[in-house]
Design a protein around this nucleic acid. Structure first.
Length: 605
DNA sequence: GTAGGGTTAG
Protein backbone atom coordinates (compact mmCIF):
# COMPACT_ATOMS: atom_id res chain seq x y z
CA UNK A 1 0.00 0.00 0.00
CA UNK A 2 2.73 2.43 1.00
CA UNK A 3 4.68 1.52 -2.12
CA UNK A 4 1.71 2.19 -4.36
CA UNK A 5 1.14 5.55 -2.72
CA UNK A 6 4.75 6.57 -3.13
CA UNK A 7 4.66 5.48 -6.76
CA UNK A 8 1.57 7.57 -7.26
CA UNK A 9 3.14 10.61 -5.68
CA UNK A 10 6.20 10.12 -7.86
CA UNK A 11 3.94 10.05 -10.83
CA UNK A 12 2.39 13.37 -9.78
CA UNK A 13 5.77 14.97 -9.32
CA UNK A 14 7.03 13.64 -12.62
CA UNK A 15 3.88 14.76 -14.45
CA UNK A 16 4.28 18.27 -13.05
CA UNK A 17 7.85 18.62 -14.17
CA UNK A 18 7.28 17.31 -17.64
CA UNK A 19 4.04 19.15 -18.35
CA UNK A 20 5.10 19.97 -21.90
CA UNK A 21 5.36 16.28 -22.86
CA UNK A 22 2.85 14.72 -25.20
CA UNK A 23 -0.35 13.33 -23.70
CA UNK A 24 0.40 9.83 -25.00
CA UNK A 25 3.73 9.77 -23.16
CA UNK A 26 2.09 10.72 -19.87
CA UNK A 27 -0.44 7.93 -20.36
CA UNK A 28 2.18 5.31 -21.03
CA UNK A 29 3.92 6.31 -17.82
CA UNK A 30 0.64 5.97 -16.02
CA UNK A 31 0.18 2.50 -17.45
CA UNK A 32 3.71 1.69 -16.34
CA UNK A 33 2.99 2.65 -12.75
CA UNK A 34 -0.28 0.73 -12.66
CA UNK A 35 1.39 -2.31 -14.18
CA UNK A 36 4.14 -2.07 -11.60
CA UNK A 37 1.59 -2.21 -8.82
CA UNK A 38 -0.03 -5.29 -10.43
CA UNK A 39 3.42 -6.94 -10.41
CA UNK A 40 3.98 -6.04 -6.76
CA UNK A 41 0.58 -7.30 -5.64
CA UNK A 42 0.53 -10.17 -8.17
CA UNK A 43 -3.04 -9.22 -9.12
CA UNK A 44 -3.51 -11.23 -12.27
CA UNK A 45 -6.99 -10.11 -13.31
CA UNK A 46 -6.22 -6.41 -12.97
CA UNK A 47 -3.02 -6.94 -14.92
CA UNK A 48 -4.76 -8.70 -17.80
CA UNK A 49 -7.37 -5.93 -17.93
CA UNK A 50 -4.58 -3.39 -17.99
CA UNK A 51 -2.82 -5.28 -20.76
CA UNK A 52 -5.95 -5.05 -22.89
CA UNK A 53 -6.15 -1.31 -22.28
CA UNK A 54 -2.48 -0.95 -23.19
CA UNK A 55 -3.11 -2.91 -26.37
CA UNK A 56 -6.07 -0.70 -27.29
CA UNK A 57 -4.03 2.42 -26.65
CA UNK A 58 -1.33 1.03 -28.98
CA UNK A 59 1.34 1.03 -26.26
CA UNK A 60 2.18 -2.66 -26.07
CA UNK A 61 5.47 -2.31 -27.85
CA UNK A 62 6.50 0.73 -25.81
CA UNK A 63 10.15 0.22 -24.75
CA UNK A 64 9.15 0.59 -21.12
CA UNK A 65 5.84 -1.25 -21.11
CA UNK A 66 6.73 -4.41 -23.04
CA UNK A 67 9.35 -5.58 -20.51
CA UNK A 68 6.97 -4.85 -17.66
CA UNK A 69 4.22 -6.84 -19.34
CA UNK A 70 6.65 -9.73 -19.78
CA UNK A 71 7.62 -9.43 -16.14
CA UNK A 72 3.98 -9.24 -15.08
CA UNK A 73 3.08 -12.55 -16.74
CA UNK A 74 6.21 -14.26 -15.48
CA UNK A 75 5.63 -13.03 -11.93
CA UNK A 76 2.10 -14.41 -12.01
CA UNK A 77 3.48 -17.81 -12.96
CA UNK A 78 2.49 -17.49 -16.64
CA UNK A 79 5.93 -17.54 -18.20
CA UNK A 80 4.47 -19.11 -21.36
CA UNK A 81 2.23 -16.06 -21.81
CA UNK A 82 5.29 -13.88 -21.31
CA UNK A 83 7.08 -15.85 -24.02
CA UNK A 84 4.16 -15.45 -26.47
CA UNK A 85 4.27 -11.73 -25.97
CA UNK A 86 8.04 -11.74 -26.47
CA UNK A 87 7.74 -13.80 -29.68
CA UNK A 88 5.19 -11.36 -31.14
CA UNK A 89 7.90 -8.88 -32.14
CA UNK A 90 11.08 -9.18 -34.20
CA UNK A 91 13.80 -10.15 -31.73
CA UNK A 92 16.34 -7.68 -33.07
CA UNK A 93 13.93 -4.85 -32.29
CA UNK A 94 13.66 -5.73 -28.59
CA UNK A 95 15.90 -4.00 -26.10
CA UNK A 96 18.02 -5.63 -23.41
CA UNK A 97 15.39 -4.75 -20.83
CA UNK A 98 12.81 -7.00 -22.55
CA UNK A 99 15.27 -9.87 -22.99
CA UNK A 100 16.36 -9.65 -19.37
CA UNK A 101 12.78 -9.54 -18.16
CA UNK A 102 12.04 -12.84 -19.88
CA UNK A 103 15.32 -14.37 -18.67
CA UNK A 104 14.33 -13.32 -15.17
CA UNK A 105 10.85 -14.72 -15.75
CA UNK A 106 12.27 -18.16 -16.53
CA UNK A 107 14.46 -18.03 -13.44
CA UNK A 108 11.60 -16.98 -11.19
CA UNK A 109 9.68 -19.97 -12.53
CA UNK A 110 12.65 -22.21 -11.85
CA UNK A 111 13.48 -22.87 -15.50
CA UNK A 112 17.19 -22.02 -15.53
CA UNK A 113 17.94 -23.95 -18.73
CA UNK A 114 15.44 -21.88 -20.71
CA UNK A 115 16.99 -18.77 -19.20
CA UNK A 116 20.43 -19.76 -20.50
CA UNK A 117 19.02 -20.73 -23.92
CA UNK A 118 17.49 -17.30 -24.19
CA UNK A 119 20.75 -15.71 -23.12
CA UNK A 120 22.58 -17.57 -25.87
CA UNK A 121 19.97 -16.42 -28.39
CA UNK A 122 20.31 -12.87 -27.14
CA UNK A 123 24.07 -12.93 -27.76
CA UNK A 124 23.52 -14.38 -31.23
CA UNK A 125 21.24 -11.48 -32.07
CA UNK A 126 23.96 -9.11 -31.01
CA UNK A 127 22.04 -7.74 -28.02
CA UNK A 128 24.55 -6.74 -25.33
CA UNK A 129 23.72 -8.01 -21.84
CA UNK A 130 23.85 -5.44 -19.04
CA UNK A 131 24.43 -5.75 -15.30
CA UNK A 132 20.79 -6.73 -14.75
CA UNK A 133 21.18 -9.65 -17.17
CA UNK A 134 24.26 -10.91 -15.34
CA UNK A 135 22.61 -10.61 -11.91
CA UNK A 136 19.67 -12.63 -13.16
CA UNK A 137 21.81 -15.37 -14.69
CA UNK A 138 23.98 -15.66 -11.62
CA UNK A 139 20.86 -16.47 -9.67
CA UNK A 140 20.24 -19.30 -12.15
CA UNK A 141 23.72 -20.71 -11.39
CA UNK A 142 22.63 -21.15 -7.78
CA UNK A 143 19.53 -23.03 -8.99
CA UNK A 144 21.67 -25.25 -11.21
CA UNK A 145 24.26 -25.77 -8.47
CA UNK A 146 27.08 -24.82 -10.80
CA UNK A 147 29.99 -22.67 -9.55
CA UNK A 148 31.74 -23.31 -12.90
CA UNK A 149 28.96 -21.56 -14.75
CA UNK A 150 29.16 -18.69 -12.26
CA UNK A 151 32.86 -18.39 -13.01
CA UNK A 152 32.18 -18.23 -16.76
CA UNK A 153 29.57 -15.54 -16.21
CA UNK A 154 31.97 -13.66 -13.98
CA UNK A 155 34.54 -13.53 -16.75
CA UNK A 156 31.90 -12.55 -19.34
CA UNK A 157 30.67 -9.76 -17.05
CA UNK A 158 34.24 -8.56 -16.57
CA UNK A 159 34.86 -8.48 -20.31
CA UNK A 160 31.59 -6.61 -20.82
CA UNK A 161 32.68 -4.05 -18.20
CA UNK A 162 29.97 -4.90 -15.66
CA UNK A 163 32.06 -6.56 -12.98
CA UNK A 164 32.23 -3.45 -10.82
CA UNK A 165 28.46 -3.09 -10.74
CA UNK A 166 27.17 -3.63 -7.22
CA UNK A 167 24.40 -5.95 -8.29
CA UNK A 168 26.89 -8.19 -10.15
CA UNK A 169 29.32 -8.13 -7.21
CA UNK A 170 26.56 -8.98 -4.76
CA UNK A 171 25.11 -11.72 -6.92
CA UNK A 172 28.56 -13.26 -7.27
CA UNK A 173 29.13 -13.27 -3.50
CA UNK A 174 25.72 -14.81 -3.03
CA UNK A 175 26.06 -17.51 -5.65
CA UNK A 176 29.57 -18.57 -4.61
CA UNK A 177 28.49 -18.63 -0.96
CA UNK A 178 25.38 -20.67 -1.72
CA UNK A 179 27.40 -23.19 -3.70
CA UNK A 180 29.97 -23.66 -0.98
CA UNK A 181 32.83 -21.87 -2.72
CA UNK A 182 33.88 -19.68 0.19
CA UNK A 183 37.24 -18.69 -1.30
CA UNK A 184 35.64 -17.25 -4.45
CA UNK A 185 32.95 -15.43 -2.46
CA UNK A 186 35.63 -13.84 -0.29
CA UNK A 187 37.74 -12.99 -3.31
CA UNK A 188 34.85 -11.09 -4.89
CA UNK A 189 34.03 -9.39 -1.57
CA UNK A 190 37.62 -8.37 -0.84
CA UNK A 191 38.27 -7.29 -4.41
CA UNK A 192 35.07 -5.25 -4.80
CA UNK A 193 35.59 -1.59 -5.64
CA UNK A 194 32.56 -0.70 -3.54
CA UNK A 195 30.44 -2.57 -1.02
CA UNK A 196 27.00 -1.87 0.37
CA UNK A 197 24.78 -3.47 2.99
CA UNK A 198 23.77 -6.21 0.54
CA UNK A 199 27.42 -7.12 -0.11
CA UNK A 200 28.14 -7.38 3.62
CA UNK A 201 24.94 -9.31 4.32
CA UNK A 202 25.69 -11.74 1.49
CA UNK A 203 29.21 -12.30 2.76
CA UNK A 204 28.01 -12.78 6.36
CA UNK A 205 25.43 -15.26 5.11
CA UNK A 206 28.08 -17.11 3.10
CA UNK A 207 30.16 -17.50 6.28
CA UNK A 208 27.14 -18.81 8.17
CA UNK A 209 26.21 -21.30 5.44
CA UNK A 210 29.77 -22.62 5.38
CA UNK A 211 29.85 -22.82 9.18
CA UNK A 212 32.53 -20.15 9.46
CA UNK A 213 30.70 -18.63 12.37
CA UNK A 214 33.57 -16.68 13.90
CA UNK A 215 34.17 -14.97 10.57
CA UNK A 216 30.46 -14.29 10.32
CA UNK A 217 30.44 -12.44 13.66
CA UNK A 218 33.66 -10.66 12.89
CA UNK A 219 32.29 -9.30 9.61
CA UNK A 220 29.11 -8.26 11.37
CA UNK A 221 30.97 -5.98 13.76
CA UNK A 222 33.47 -4.83 11.15
CA UNK A 223 30.61 -3.76 8.91
CA UNK A 224 29.29 -1.48 11.63
CA UNK A 225 32.56 -0.22 13.07
CA UNK A 226 34.55 0.31 9.90
CA UNK A 227 31.87 1.08 7.36
CA UNK A 228 29.26 2.62 9.64
CA UNK A 229 26.57 0.49 8.00
CA UNK A 230 23.46 -0.30 10.02
CA UNK A 231 22.28 -3.90 9.79
CA UNK A 232 18.74 -4.57 8.67
CA UNK A 233 16.62 -7.66 9.35
CA UNK A 234 18.28 -9.62 6.55
CA UNK A 235 21.70 -8.97 8.09
CA UNK A 236 20.40 -10.08 11.48
CA UNK A 237 18.97 -13.28 9.99
CA UNK A 238 22.36 -13.97 8.40
CA UNK A 239 24.33 -13.55 11.62
CA UNK A 240 21.90 -15.23 14.05
CA UNK A 241 23.08 -18.78 13.21
CA UNK A 242 26.51 -17.74 14.50
CA UNK A 243 25.02 -16.60 17.86
CA UNK A 244 23.25 -19.94 18.01
CA UNK A 245 26.34 -21.93 17.16
CA UNK A 246 28.39 -20.36 19.93
CA UNK A 247 25.39 -20.28 22.27
CA UNK A 248 25.94 -16.55 22.67
CA UNK A 249 22.61 -15.83 24.30
CA UNK A 250 23.45 -12.21 25.10
CA UNK A 251 24.47 -11.42 21.54
CA UNK A 252 21.34 -13.17 20.26
CA UNK A 253 19.18 -11.19 22.68
CA UNK A 254 20.89 -8.00 21.51
CA UNK A 255 19.96 -8.87 17.91
CA UNK A 256 16.35 -9.47 18.95
CA UNK A 257 16.28 -6.17 20.85
CA UNK A 258 17.74 -4.39 17.83
CA UNK A 259 14.95 -5.70 15.60
CA UNK A 260 12.38 -4.40 18.05
CA UNK A 261 14.12 -1.09 18.73
CA UNK A 262 14.57 -0.26 15.07
CA UNK A 263 11.07 -1.55 14.31
CA UNK A 264 12.43 -3.85 11.64
CA UNK A 265 9.89 -6.36 10.33
CA UNK A 266 9.60 -9.45 12.49
CA UNK A 267 8.54 -11.71 9.64
CA UNK A 268 8.68 -15.50 9.41
CA UNK A 269 12.36 -15.44 8.38
CA UNK A 270 13.35 -13.39 11.42
CA UNK A 271 10.96 -15.42 13.59
CA UNK A 272 12.39 -18.80 12.71
CA UNK A 273 15.98 -17.68 13.04
CA UNK A 274 15.21 -16.20 16.47
CA UNK A 275 13.47 -19.41 17.53
CA UNK A 276 16.52 -21.39 16.39
CA UNK A 277 18.95 -19.04 18.07
CA UNK A 278 17.14 -19.14 21.45
CA UNK A 279 16.83 -22.93 21.19
CA UNK A 280 20.53 -23.30 20.41
CA UNK A 281 21.28 -21.12 23.42
CA UNK A 282 19.38 -23.56 25.65
CA UNK A 283 16.49 -21.16 26.15
CA UNK A 284 13.40 -22.89 24.72
CA UNK A 285 11.13 -20.67 26.84
CA UNK A 286 12.16 -17.53 24.98
CA UNK A 287 12.10 -19.46 21.70
CA UNK A 288 8.49 -20.34 22.41
CA UNK A 289 7.71 -16.73 23.38
CA UNK A 290 8.84 -15.64 19.91
CA UNK A 291 6.94 -18.50 18.26
CA UNK A 292 3.80 -17.73 20.24
CA UNK A 293 3.69 -14.06 19.31
CA UNK A 294 4.10 -14.58 15.57
CA UNK A 295 0.97 -13.68 13.60
CA UNK A 296 1.67 -16.03 10.75
CA UNK A 297 3.27 -19.40 11.30
CA UNK A 298 4.55 -21.26 8.30
CA UNK A 299 6.01 -24.73 8.16
CA UNK A 300 9.58 -23.54 8.73
CA UNK A 301 8.62 -21.67 11.89
CA UNK A 302 6.77 -24.72 13.26
CA UNK A 303 9.70 -26.95 12.35
CA UNK A 304 12.15 -24.64 14.11
CA UNK A 305 10.11 -24.71 17.29
CA UNK A 306 9.65 -28.50 17.22
CA UNK A 307 13.40 -28.84 16.80
CA UNK A 308 13.91 -26.28 19.60
CA UNK A 309 11.91 -28.37 22.07
CA UNK A 310 13.53 -31.62 20.99
CA UNK A 311 17.02 -30.17 21.21
CA UNK A 312 16.31 -29.12 24.77
CA UNK A 313 15.04 -32.50 25.88
CA UNK A 314 11.34 -31.52 25.83
CA UNK A 315 10.29 -34.41 23.61
CA UNK A 316 6.64 -34.48 24.64
CA UNK A 317 6.27 -30.78 23.87
CA UNK A 318 7.94 -31.39 20.52
CA UNK A 319 5.50 -34.13 19.52
CA UNK A 320 2.54 -32.19 20.91
CA UNK A 321 3.54 -29.24 18.76
CA UNK A 322 3.79 -31.54 15.74
CA UNK A 323 0.17 -32.62 16.38
CA UNK A 324 -0.94 -29.01 16.80
CA UNK A 325 0.74 -28.07 13.56
CA UNK A 326 -1.21 -30.70 11.67
CA UNK A 327 -4.45 -29.68 13.40
CA UNK A 328 -3.87 -26.16 12.09
CA UNK A 329 -3.65 -27.61 8.59
CA UNK A 330 0.07 -26.93 8.11
CA UNK A 331 1.60 -29.70 6.00
CA UNK A 332 4.93 -30.90 7.32
CA UNK A 333 7.80 -30.92 4.83
CA UNK A 334 10.64 -33.42 4.76
CA UNK A 335 12.74 -31.35 7.16
CA UNK A 336 9.87 -31.36 9.68
CA UNK A 337 9.89 -35.14 9.54
CA UNK A 338 13.66 -35.33 9.99
CA UNK A 339 13.27 -33.16 13.08
CA UNK A 340 10.33 -35.16 14.44
CA UNK A 341 12.00 -38.54 13.88
CA UNK A 342 15.14 -37.19 15.48
CA UNK A 343 13.05 -36.12 18.49
CA UNK A 344 11.68 -39.68 18.76
CA UNK A 345 15.19 -41.05 18.52
CA UNK A 346 16.70 -38.77 21.16
CA UNK A 347 13.72 -39.18 23.43
CA UNK A 348 13.75 -42.97 23.16
CA UNK A 349 10.21 -42.86 21.75
CA UNK A 350 10.64 -45.92 19.54
CA UNK A 351 6.98 -46.76 19.10
CA UNK A 352 6.00 -43.23 18.00
CA UNK A 353 9.05 -43.12 15.76
CA UNK A 354 8.02 -46.24 13.87
CA UNK A 355 4.44 -45.02 13.61
CA UNK A 356 5.46 -41.71 12.08
CA UNK A 357 8.06 -43.26 9.81
CA UNK A 358 5.58 -45.84 8.48
CA UNK A 359 2.91 -43.23 7.79
CA UNK A 360 5.14 -40.69 6.08
CA UNK A 361 4.14 -41.42 2.53
CA UNK A 362 0.48 -42.09 3.10
CA UNK A 363 -0.27 -39.36 5.58
CA UNK A 364 2.09 -36.60 4.49
CA UNK A 365 2.98 -37.57 0.93
CA UNK A 366 6.67 -37.58 1.77
CA UNK A 367 9.00 -40.28 0.49
CA UNK A 368 11.66 -41.21 3.05
CA UNK A 369 15.12 -39.87 2.25
CA UNK A 370 18.48 -40.85 3.58
CA UNK A 371 18.12 -38.43 6.53
CA UNK A 372 14.93 -40.14 7.67
CA UNK A 373 16.53 -43.57 7.42
CA UNK A 374 19.52 -42.30 9.39
CA UNK A 375 17.19 -41.13 12.19
CA UNK A 376 15.60 -44.57 12.34
CA UNK A 377 18.98 -46.30 12.46
CA UNK A 378 20.01 -43.92 15.22
CA UNK A 379 16.76 -44.57 17.08
CA UNK A 380 17.21 -48.34 17.02
CA UNK A 381 20.91 -48.09 17.78
CA UNK A 382 20.39 -45.86 20.78
CA UNK A 383 18.11 -48.33 22.54
CA UNK A 384 20.64 -51.06 21.85
CA UNK A 385 18.69 -52.79 19.08
CA UNK A 386 21.84 -53.04 17.00
CA UNK A 387 20.89 -56.13 15.05
CA UNK A 388 17.47 -54.76 14.22
CA UNK A 389 19.18 -51.60 13.02
CA UNK A 390 21.47 -53.63 10.78
CA UNK A 391 18.50 -55.51 9.33
CA UNK A 392 16.74 -52.21 8.81
CA UNK A 393 19.71 -50.95 6.78
CA UNK A 394 19.69 -54.09 4.64
CA UNK A 395 15.99 -53.67 3.89
CA UNK A 396 16.17 -49.99 2.93
CA UNK A 397 14.88 -48.76 -0.44
CA UNK A 398 17.96 -46.67 -0.94
CA UNK A 399 21.67 -47.41 -1.07
CA UNK A 400 23.16 -46.95 2.41
CA UNK A 401 25.47 -43.96 2.63
CA UNK A 402 28.36 -43.27 4.95
CA UNK A 403 26.01 -41.29 7.19
CA UNK A 404 23.79 -44.34 7.67
CA UNK A 405 26.72 -46.52 8.74
CA UNK A 406 27.99 -43.59 10.84
CA UNK A 407 24.73 -43.50 12.82
CA UNK A 408 25.07 -47.14 13.75
CA UNK A 409 28.76 -46.85 14.51
CA UNK A 410 27.92 -44.21 17.12
CA UNK A 411 25.54 -46.68 18.74
CA UNK A 412 28.23 -49.35 18.79
CA UNK A 413 30.39 -46.97 20.79
CA UNK A 414 27.64 -46.37 23.35
CA UNK A 415 26.87 -50.08 23.67
CA UNK A 416 30.52 -51.22 23.41
CA UNK A 417 29.80 -53.59 20.53
CA UNK A 418 33.29 -54.26 19.20
CA UNK A 419 32.40 -56.84 16.57
CA UNK A 420 29.78 -54.79 14.71
CA UNK A 421 31.71 -51.58 15.34
CA UNK A 422 34.79 -52.99 13.64
CA UNK A 423 32.79 -54.21 10.67
CA UNK A 424 31.07 -50.87 10.18
CA UNK A 425 34.17 -48.81 10.78
CA UNK A 426 36.12 -50.77 8.17
CA UNK A 427 33.37 -50.07 5.65
CA UNK A 428 33.42 -46.42 6.64
CA UNK A 429 37.19 -46.09 6.47
CA UNK A 430 36.90 -47.21 2.85
CA UNK A 431 33.95 -44.95 2.05
CA UNK A 432 35.39 -41.84 3.66
CA UNK A 433 39.08 -42.34 4.46
CA UNK A 434 39.53 -38.68 5.37
CA UNK A 435 36.85 -38.48 8.06
CA UNK A 436 38.73 -38.40 11.37
CA UNK A 437 35.54 -39.02 13.36
CA UNK A 438 35.32 -42.65 12.23
CA UNK A 439 38.87 -43.39 13.42
CA UNK A 440 38.15 -41.70 16.74
CA UNK A 441 34.93 -43.66 17.35
CA UNK A 442 36.52 -47.00 16.50
CA UNK A 443 39.48 -46.13 18.68
CA UNK A 444 37.10 -45.24 21.52
CA UNK A 445 35.29 -48.56 21.08
CA UNK A 446 38.63 -50.38 21.44
CA UNK A 447 39.55 -48.21 24.43
CA UNK A 448 36.27 -48.92 26.20
CA UNK A 449 37.07 -52.64 26.21
CA UNK A 450 40.77 -52.15 26.95
CA UNK A 451 42.13 -53.09 23.51
CA UNK A 452 44.98 -50.63 23.83
CA UNK A 453 47.08 -52.06 21.00
CA UNK A 454 44.27 -51.46 18.54
CA UNK A 455 43.83 -47.96 19.95
CA UNK A 456 47.49 -47.27 19.20
CA UNK A 457 47.22 -48.84 15.73
CA UNK A 458 44.39 -46.46 14.80
CA UNK A 459 46.23 -43.47 16.21
CA UNK A 460 49.24 -44.33 14.06
CA UNK A 461 46.97 -44.75 11.04
CA UNK A 462 45.51 -41.29 11.65
CA UNK A 463 49.01 -39.79 11.86
CA UNK A 464 50.03 -41.61 8.65
CA UNK A 465 47.02 -40.22 6.84
CA UNK A 466 47.56 -36.74 8.22
CA UNK A 467 44.26 -36.64 10.13
CA UNK A 468 43.77 -34.82 13.40
CA UNK A 469 40.84 -34.86 15.78
CA UNK A 470 39.65 -31.54 17.10
CA UNK A 471 40.53 -31.20 20.79
CA UNK A 472 37.59 -30.99 23.18
CA UNK A 473 36.78 -27.63 24.70
CA UNK A 474 33.99 -25.91 26.58
CA UNK A 475 33.17 -22.25 26.80
CA UNK A 476 31.08 -19.89 28.89
CA UNK A 477 29.97 -16.31 28.28
CA UNK A 478 30.43 -14.05 31.30
CA UNK A 479 29.80 -10.32 31.02
CA UNK A 480 30.07 -10.36 27.21
CA UNK A 481 33.37 -12.19 27.34
CA UNK A 482 33.85 -15.79 26.30
CA UNK A 483 36.09 -18.01 28.41
CA UNK A 484 37.28 -21.16 26.65
CA UNK A 485 38.65 -24.18 28.50
CA UNK A 486 40.39 -27.26 27.16
CA UNK A 487 40.65 -30.48 29.15
CA UNK A 488 43.09 -30.18 32.07
CA UNK A 489 43.64 -26.60 31.04
CA UNK A 490 45.64 -24.31 33.32
CA UNK A 491 45.98 -21.36 31.02
CA UNK A 492 43.13 -19.26 32.43
CA UNK A 493 44.37 -16.34 34.58
CA UNK A 494 42.04 -17.48 37.37
CA UNK A 495 43.16 -21.08 37.06
CA UNK A 496 44.25 -21.59 40.70
CA UNK A 497 40.87 -20.52 42.01
CA UNK A 498 39.08 -22.66 39.41
CA UNK A 499 40.94 -25.79 40.51
CA UNK A 500 40.30 -24.93 44.20
CA UNK A 501 36.61 -24.60 43.38
CA UNK A 502 36.71 -27.95 41.56
CA UNK A 503 38.23 -29.65 44.59
CA UNK A 504 35.57 -28.14 46.79
CA UNK A 505 32.83 -29.31 44.39
CA UNK A 506 34.46 -32.76 44.26
CA UNK A 507 34.16 -33.05 48.05
CA UNK A 508 30.54 -31.93 48.00
CA UNK A 509 29.43 -34.34 45.30
CA UNK A 510 31.37 -37.20 46.89
CA UNK A 511 29.30 -36.65 50.03
CA UNK A 512 26.21 -36.79 47.80
CA UNK A 513 27.25 -40.20 46.52
CA UNK A 514 29.45 -39.55 43.47
CA UNK A 515 31.64 -42.46 42.38
CA UNK A 516 33.98 -41.73 39.43
CA UNK A 517 33.19 -43.85 36.34
CA UNK A 518 36.73 -44.43 35.17
CA UNK A 519 35.63 -46.50 32.15
CA UNK A 520 35.09 -43.18 30.43
CA UNK A 521 38.80 -42.41 30.48
CA UNK A 522 39.93 -43.64 27.10
CA UNK A 523 43.60 -43.73 27.99
CA UNK A 524 45.75 -46.61 29.22
CA UNK A 525 46.73 -45.13 32.60
CA UNK A 526 46.52 -46.04 36.31
CA UNK A 527 43.15 -45.93 38.06
CA UNK A 528 44.16 -42.98 40.28
CA UNK A 529 45.30 -41.01 37.25
CA UNK A 530 41.99 -41.78 35.54
CA UNK A 531 40.11 -40.30 38.50
CA UNK A 532 42.28 -37.21 38.40
CA UNK A 533 41.78 -36.78 34.65
CA UNK A 534 38.00 -37.01 34.91
CA UNK A 535 37.86 -34.11 37.37
CA UNK A 536 39.36 -31.64 34.94
CA UNK A 537 37.33 -32.30 31.79
CA UNK A 538 36.72 -28.99 30.07
CA UNK A 539 33.03 -28.72 30.98
CA UNK A 540 33.86 -29.05 34.67
CA UNK A 541 36.39 -26.22 34.45
CA UNK A 542 33.77 -24.06 32.74
CA UNK A 543 31.17 -24.95 35.39
CA UNK A 544 33.53 -24.11 38.23
CA UNK A 545 34.31 -20.78 36.61
CA UNK A 546 30.61 -20.15 36.00
CA UNK A 547 29.69 -20.88 39.62
CA UNK A 548 32.32 -18.40 40.73
CA UNK A 549 31.49 -15.62 38.28
CA UNK A 550 27.99 -15.92 36.76
CA UNK A 551 25.15 -13.83 38.20
CA UNK A 552 23.66 -15.56 41.23
CA UNK A 553 20.28 -16.00 39.56
CA UNK A 554 19.38 -17.91 36.42
CA UNK A 555 20.99 -20.93 34.81
CA UNK A 556 24.69 -21.26 34.10
CA UNK A 557 25.09 -21.92 30.39
CA UNK A 558 28.00 -23.78 28.90
CA UNK A 559 28.69 -25.00 25.38
CA UNK A 560 30.95 -27.82 24.34
CA UNK A 561 32.29 -28.96 20.96
CA UNK A 562 32.02 -32.67 21.77
CA UNK A 563 29.66 -34.97 23.64
CA UNK A 564 29.62 -34.80 27.43
CA UNK A 565 31.22 -37.94 28.82
CA UNK A 566 29.20 -40.33 30.96
CA UNK A 567 31.13 -39.56 34.11
CA UNK A 568 30.82 -35.79 33.73
CA UNK A 569 27.11 -36.29 33.14
CA UNK A 570 26.75 -38.05 36.50
CA UNK A 571 28.99 -35.54 38.29
CA UNK A 572 27.15 -32.52 36.88
CA UNK A 573 23.79 -33.91 37.95
CA UNK A 574 25.11 -33.93 41.52
CA UNK A 575 26.67 -30.48 41.12
CA UNK A 576 23.21 -29.16 40.20
CA UNK A 577 21.89 -30.81 43.35
CA UNK A 578 24.49 -29.58 45.83
CA UNK A 579 24.75 -26.07 44.44
CA UNK A 580 21.00 -25.73 43.75
CA UNK A 581 21.82 -24.15 40.44
CA UNK A 582 20.43 -25.00 37.04
CA UNK A 583 23.26 -25.97 34.71
CA UNK A 584 22.67 -25.97 30.98
CA UNK A 585 25.23 -27.69 28.79
CA UNK A 586 25.11 -27.83 25.06
CA UNK A 587 27.04 -30.57 23.32
CA UNK A 588 27.40 -30.99 19.55
CA UNK A 589 23.71 -31.15 18.85
CA UNK A 590 21.57 -30.97 21.95
CA UNK A 591 21.16 -29.71 25.47
CA UNK A 592 21.41 -31.12 28.91
CA UNK A 593 19.38 -29.16 31.44
CA UNK A 594 20.61 -30.26 34.85
CA UNK A 595 18.21 -29.44 37.67
CA UNK A 596 18.12 -30.77 41.23
CA UNK A 597 20.17 -33.83 40.52
CA UNK A 598 18.66 -34.96 37.22
CA UNK A 599 19.00 -34.16 33.54
CA UNK A 600 16.43 -33.34 30.86
CA UNK A 601 17.91 -36.00 28.57
CA UNK A 602 16.76 -38.67 31.01
CA UNK A 603 20.28 -40.17 30.87
CA UNK A 604 19.53 -41.10 27.32
CA UNK A 605 21.68 -39.37 24.79
C1' DG B 1 13.85 -3.59 -14.85
C1' DT B 2 18.68 -5.84 -10.94
C1' DA B 3 21.51 -8.05 -6.00
C1' DG B 4 21.02 -10.29 0.14
C1' DG B 5 17.07 -13.90 4.60
C1' DG B 6 14.62 -18.98 8.22
C1' DT B 7 14.09 -25.28 9.66
C1' DT B 8 17.75 -30.79 8.32
C1' DA B 9 20.16 -37.07 10.94
C1' DG B 10 25.41 -38.99 12.92
Amino acid sequence: MIITQSLQSNLLLGGGRKSNQKASSASSREFGVLLQSCIKTKSFQNGVRLHNQILEAGFERNHDLLPRLVKFYATCGCVEEARKLFDKYPKRSLNVFVWTSLINGYIENEQPYQAFDLFREMLEFGIKPDSFTFSALLKACALLGSPELALQLQSLATKAGHSSSLSVTNSLIHVYGSLGDFASALQVFDGASSRDLVSWTSMIRSCSILKKYAESMELFSKMQLEEGLKPNELTIVSVLPACGFFSFLRSGQAMHAYIIRRQLPLNSFVGSSLVSMYSQCGDPEDAFRVFDTMDERNVVLWTSMIEGFAMNGQFDSALKLFDQMREKGIRPNYVTLVVVLCACSHGGLVEQGWKIFNSMREEFGIVARVEHYACMVDMLGRVGKLEEAEEFIEGMNIEPTASIYGSLLGACQVHSNVELGERLANKLLELEPDNAANYVILSNIYASVGKWEDVQRLRDLMVDRGLTKSPGCSWIEIKNKTHVFGAHDRSHPDSDNIYRKLEDLGDQIARAGYVPLTKFVLLDVEEAEKKRLLCSHSERLAIAYGLMNAPSRGPIRIAKNLRVCGDCHEAIKLVSLVTRRELVIRDTSRFHHFREGSCSCGDYW
